[in-house]
């Protein structure tokens, strides 16, 4: 078979897409691993972050980098509030109730964004160059997003492994009950984790807004794939989600190359079902 330049281009684009998906999965997995809660509305936090960057940069003329920082802090604050207002009152009810409560939040955030911002597609109007390497077209925005996603993940790793509070977070994720007895303020750890999860969503928002238009339903276009990635990698497994993100993104871009983009997603899902037969606990998960 002849060397296929388009295939290689798709593979590279898949890698770059995988970076952002991995970042999304990382935030969700972190929250699940520590608090044992799934935020169905996670992608909607990303959507709000994208709107924050859009309004600050394209409307009020705040420099992009500064707008990005404000968006990250804003979504982190939002993550804090999600835990404080929605999750903590029902922390002791069945886990599925917490999941459904964040489902209500999904509805609310999506509809509220519609109410506030209308349903137009908005673009920050920034045209980043397309890099041409050996006849392959690589979007600079994607490259930037990939790099920033990797940096964000390294920063999270260092935070979790090198700081006192990071160690506390890891300890709580291993055993919630024991750590509370050992004198760790689990409430505080939960709130900090939620804020970090929100911050990661904010970072993902900054990277996604460079590539995609923002509209109130944008969360639905990458929310479900993020959940699939998390389950595929093993819920709460940071590394598993990381690997799964790159696997799934390859399905999407290669499938999208030969067929339509929707078929890429469908293929990814079929692969996902196949994997469930083989490793239902996820690539790196352990069975409980």
């Amino acid at each position: 078979m002849a060397f296929d330049i388009y295939l290689l281009e798709a593979i590279i684009n898949g890698l770059l897409l995988g970076g952002v998906l991995a970042l999304l999965a990382l935030g969700l997995n972190l929250i699940f691993g520590v608090i044992d809660v799934i935020w169905i509305s996670y992608a909607e936090l990303v959507m709000l972050g994208m709107y924050a960057v859009y309004w600050l940069h394209a409307y009020y003329g705040v420099p992009l980098v500064l707008a990005g920082f404000i968006a990250i802090l804003g979504v982190a604050a939002l993550g804090f509030l999600v835990h404080y207002l929605v999750i903590s009152p029902i922390l002791s009810s069945p886990p599925i109730n917490q999941l459904l409560a964040t489902g209500g939040l999904l509805f609310f955030l999506q509809a509220f964004a519609m109410l506030l911002f209308g349903n137009e597609f908005r673009n920050i109007g920034l045209r980043l160059p397309i890099i041409v390497i050996a006849d392959m077209y690589i979007s600079f925005a994607r490259l930037l997003a990939f790099g920033a996603a990797l940096l964000g993940m390294v920063a999270l790793y260092l935070f979790l492994s090198r700081t006192f509070i990071g160690t506390a977070i890891r300890a709580v994720s291993q055993d919630r009950e024991i750590m509370a007895i050992m004198g760790v303020d689990t409430k505080k750890v939960y709130l900090i984790t939620s804020a970090i999860g929100g911050g990661l969503a904010g970072l993902a928002a900054c990277l996604l807004v460079l590539q995609y238009d923002v509209h109130p339903d944008v969360g639905l276009s990458f929310g479900p794939i993020t959940f699939m990635i998390c389950v595929l990698g093993g819920l709460g497994r940071l590394l598993g989600g990381f690997i799964a993100a790159f696997v799934m993104s390859q399905f999407i871009t290669i499938g999208g190359l030969y067929l339509d983009l929707e078929w890429g997603y469908v293929l990814a899902f079929v692969f996902f079902i196949g994997m469930m037969f083989w490793r239902p606990q996820g690539i790196l998960g352990t069975r409980s």
Partner: peptide, 22 residues
């Protein structure tokens, strides 16, 4: 003219129901 209002209220109600009236 107010698209999204009903769903905003739905969403809020859903959260409140799960917290207070599961």
């Amino acid at each position: 003219q107010i698209i999204g209002l009903d769903l905003s209220i739905y969403g809020l109600l859903l959260i409140l129901f799960i917290i207070f009236l599961p």
